[in-house]
C-alpha cells in the first residue's frame, strides 16, 4: 500500500498533551473530600510503619513501677502490664502488621489475577485444574485452615505470614477475574487483537487485564484489611508464636495478661490496636472510590 500520497492534514498540530496518570489521580481524589481523608489515613499508617520504629529502641523499656498507667503526656496511650508505653507498642507493631498484610494482599492479587486470567482466557484443562483448586480453598473455611496450618508450619515472620495468607486467599479473586475474562474474551476487541497479530501474552495482559484492573485494585485494598483481620486473629488466638511485637500480640496480651475483659484499667491498652485496625479499614474504604475512578476511564469526567 502506498504511503507516499496520503493526505497530511495533521500538520496543524494543536499543542495538547494528554492528562498524566498523576493528574487523573489527583483529580479523582479532589472530587470528594472523603477520598482525601482516606488517603490521609493510609499515608499516616504507612509513614508510621516505615519510619516510626526508628524512634524507638529495639527492646522497648519496661517499667514495673508504672503498669496500666492512664494516658498522660509521657504516655499518651497509657502503659501495658509491664509498664511499656502503648503508643510505642502501636508504632513498632504497625510495621509487622502492614508489611505482612501488604505482602499477603500482593500474593493474593498476584496469584488470583494471573490464575483467573489464564483459566478464563485459555479455558480447557488449565481452567478445569485451577478452578478445582480454587473451589477447594473456597469451600474450606480460611481461618480454621490457617489455624491448622500454623500448627505444622511456623509462619511467624511477616514474609511467611504474607505468603501463607496469599496462598490460601487467592481463590475468590481468581474466580471473579475468570468470570470477567470469560465475558471479555468474547468481545470483538480481543478478536481484533488476534487478527492484528498480537501475541497471546499481549492479549491476556495488555488487552484483557486492564479491563479487570479496577476490580483487582479494589480487591488488593480489601485484601489488605482482610489479611490484617486474619493475622490479628491468629495472634489473638495465640496459635502463632510471638516473635515480634504487633497489634495482634497486643490484643492477645490485653486479654490474657491484663484481663481486659474484667477490668477497665487496661482499656487504653485494649482499645488502641482496635482503633488502629478500624481506622485503617475506614481509610481504605474511603479511598476505594478514587481507585475505581482512576483505573476506569469510563468513570472519569474529562
Amino acid at each position: 500500500m502506498a504511503t507516499a500520497n496520503l493526505p497530511t492534514s495533521h500538520e496543524h498540530i494543536r499543542p495538547w498533551t494528554p492528562p498524566t496518570f498523576w493528574s487523573i489521580a489527583w483529580k479523582a481524589l479532589r472530587r470528594k473530600p472523603s477520598r482525601m481523608l482516606g488517603l490521609g489515613i493510609l499515608v499516616f499508617y504507612v509513614l508510621m510503619a516505615v519510619f516510626g520504629p526508628m524512634f524507638y529502641p529495639a527492646n522497648l523499656p519496661t517499667n514495673p513501677a508504672n503498669i496500666y498507667a492512664s494516658p498522660s503526656w509521657t504516655h499518651p496511650l497509657g502503659t501495658d502490664f509491664e509498664g511499656t508505653d502503648v503508643l510505642a507498642l502501636i508504632v513498632t507493631g504497625s510495621r509487622y502488621v502492614l508489611y505482612s498484610a501488604g505482602l499477603a494482599a500482593f500474593f493474593t492479587v498476584g496469584i488470583g489475577a494471573i490464575l483467573g486470567l489464564v483459566s478464563g482466557y485459555f479455558r480447557g484443562w488449565p481452567e478445569a485444574i485451577i478452578m478445582r483448586i480454587a473451589d477447594f480453598f473456597l469451600t474450606v473455611p480460611g481461618f480454621p485452615l490457617l489455624v491448622v496450618l500454623s500448627t505444622v508450619w511456623n509462619f511467624g515472620n511477616p514474609v511467611s505470614m504474607g505468603l501463607v495468607l496469599g496462598l490460601t486467599g487467592w481463590a475468590a479473586l481468581a474466580r471473579a477475574v475468570r468470570s470477567q475474562t470469560l465475558s471479555l474474551r468474547e468481545r470483538s476487541f480481543v478478536e481484533a487483537a488476534r487478527g492484528l497479530g498480537l501475541s497471546r501474552r499481549q492479549i491476556v495482559f495488555g488487552e484483557v487485564f486492564p479491563n479487570t484492573a479496577p476490580y483487582v485494585a479494589m480487591h488488593f485494598l480489601l485484601a489488605i484489611t482482610g489479611s490484617i483481620y486474619l493475622e490479628v486473629g491468629l495472634f489473638f488466638l495465640g496459635v502463632v508464636p510471638f516473635s515480634t511485637n504487633n497489634w495482634g500480640v497486643m490484643l492477645n496480651l490485653a486479654f490474657s495478661q491484663a484481663g481486659a475483659m474484667y477490668s477497665t484499667r487496661a482499656l487504653p491498652y485494649l482499645l488502641s490496636p482496635l482503633f488502629c485496625i478500624m481506622s485503617l479499614t475506614f481509610g481504605i474504604v474511603l479511598f476505594l472510590g478514587a481507585v475505581d475512578e482512576v483505573l476506569n476511564p469510563r468513570l472519569r469526567s474529562v
Binding site: S188, A193, R298
Partner: peptide, 12 residues
C-alpha cells in the same frame, strides 16, 4: 466488526 462499541478496548 459489526459492533463498534465492543471492537475497541475501553481501557485504552
Amino acid at each position: 466488526h459489526q459492533d463498534p462499541y465492543t471492537a475497541l478496548n475501553p481501557s485504552h
